[in-house]
Simulated scan of single mutants.
Amino acid sequence: MSSEPVDEIQVWKTFQSGSKDAYTSLYRLHVKAMYRYGMSLVPVSEAFVFDCIHDVFTEIWVKRERLSVPENIRHYLLKSLKVRIIHLLHRQEKSHSSLTQGDFDDLWSEPSADEIYIEKEAADNRREMVRRLIALLPHRQQEAIRLRYVENMDYQEIGNILAVNRQSAQNLVHRAVQKLREWLQ
């Protein structure tokens, strides 16, 4: 893969016109992030998460001509994945009665206003809790976390800013994440 930045919007538009290469490119650009995100939502099984990812990509292929161009493709794909996972988990909780046409009608339905509010409230609470926990970390680890996950910098760039080598930057981030995981469990 080349190191030049990819114009994702152009790739999306090419995909919408039916290009399988552009479709594959979108998959390759986002599958790892979708996998990490999916596993963070439901660490039940890799197969379940991959099935959901593939469902999302199948759905966008089928609907490609009707889809608009999202402002942020990764955000769109992650949100679609979350909706798919929640939907499938909710379906698994339902009784296993025979399938009706209604079961298929709501596969990709939009969440209700109440569901959106509850989800937003829960996300706000989680964000606040993580913010408080991050504030408990040593200053250097806080800065490393912020540079890595908010500013999206790689470890070399973080090392340059913090005046440490790449490995030390990676260690700072790793220790901070480890400590946060301990506190969250």
Rank of each mutant, 00 (worst) to 15 (best):
residue 29 L to E: 12
residue 31 V to I: 15
residue 107 L to C: 14
residue 158 I to Q: 00
residue 134 I to N: 09
residue 167 Q to P: 00
residue 21 D to R: 15
residue 139 H to T: 08
residue 114 D to K: 14
residue 9 I to R: 13
residue 13 K to Q: 14
residue 132 R to M: 12
residue 15 F to G: 04
residue 136 L to A: 09
residue 148 R to W: 02
residue 58 T to Y: 06
residue 75 H to L: 05
residue 167 Q to K: 08
residue 19 S to L: 08
residue 146 R to Q: 10
residue 39 M to A: 07
residue 22 A to R: 08
residue 5 P to Y: 07
residue 163 A to R: 07
residue 159 G to N: 01
residue 167 Q to G: 04
residue 37 Y to V: 00
residue 20 K to A: 08
residue 55 D to V: 03
residue 143 E to Q: 14
residue 146 R to D: 09
residue 71 E to Y: 10
residue 53 I to W: 07
residue 31 V to M: 13
residue 58 T to H: 12
residue 118 I to K: 15
residue 67 L to R: 02
residue 170 Q to I: 02
residue 22 A to Q: 13
residue 163 A to N: 03
residue 112 S to T: 15
residue 8 E to L: 04
residue 59 E to W: 04
residue 17 S to N: 08
residue 13 K to F: 04
residue 151 E to R: 11
residue 136 L to S: 06
residue 94 K to I: 05
residue 78 L to F: 05
residue 132 R to K: 09
residue 183 W to L: 08
residue 112 S to Q: 11
residue 120 K to Y: 11
residue 43 P to N: 11
residue 140 R to D: 13
residue 116 I to N: 08
residue 130 V to Y: 09
residue 156 Q to E: 14
residue 83 V to D: 02
residue 43 P to S: 03
residue 1 M to G: 14
residue 131 R to T: 06
residue 110 E to W: 03
residue 126 R to G: 03
residue 11 V to L: 07
residue 160 N to V: 02
residue 116 I to L: 14
residue 69 V to Q: 00
residue 150 V to T: 13
residue 125 N to I: 13
residue 181 R to V: 10
residue 69 V to T: 15
residue 152 N to D: 04
residue 13 K to I: 13
residue 54 H to T: 07
residue 57 F to N: 06
residue 34 M to T: 12
residue 42 V to M: 07
residue 125 N to C: 07
residue 30 H to E: 01
residue 75 H to P: 00
residue 129 M to G: 00
residue 169 A to G: 10
residue 142 Q to N: 06
residue 151 E to D: 15
residue 26 L to W: 04
residue 76 Y to N: 02
residue 135 A to T: 01
residue 101 Q to K: 07
residue 113 A to E: 14
residue 109 S to R: 10
residue 123 A to S: 05
residue 109 S to Y: 02
residue 85 I to T: 00
residue 139 H to Y: 12
residue 45 S to T: 15
residue 9 I to S: 11
residue 75 H to K: 14
residue 152 N to F: 03
residue 180 L to G: 02
residue 44 V to E: 12
residue 105 D to L: 13
residue 79 K to W: 06
residue 34 M to L: 15
residue 172 L to T: 00
residue 105 D to F: 07
residue 130 V to E: 03
residue 98 S to K: 11
residue 115 E to D: 14
residue 42 V to K: 05
residue 112 S to E: 13
residue 16 Q to N: 12
residue 151 E to V: 05
residue 78 L to C: 09
residue 14 T to D: 15
residue 139 H to N: 04
residue 7 D to S: 10
residue 161 I to K: 06
residue 142 Q to D: 12
residue 164 V to K: 03
residue 36 R to I: 10
residue 109 S to V: 09
residue 139 H to R: 01
residue 132 R to I: 01
residue 176 A to N: 09
residue 185 Q to L: 03
residue 3 S to L: 01
residue 171 N to I: 05
residue 163 A to K: 10
residue 100 T to Y: 01
residue 37 Y to E: 03
residue 81 L to W: 04
residue 62 V to D: 05
residue 21 D to L: 05
residue 23 Y to M: 02
residue 69 V to S: 04
residue 20 K to C: 04
residue 140 R to W: 01
residue 36 R to K: 15
residue 94 K to E: 15
residue 183 W to I: 07
residue 68 S to K: 09
residue 89 L to A: 09
residue 66 R to L: 12
residue 133 L to E: 08
residue 76 Y to C: 03
residue 165 N to T: 02
residue 89 L to M: 08
residue 163 A to G: 01
residue 156 Q to A: 12
residue 79 K to I: 06
residue 79 K to R: 12
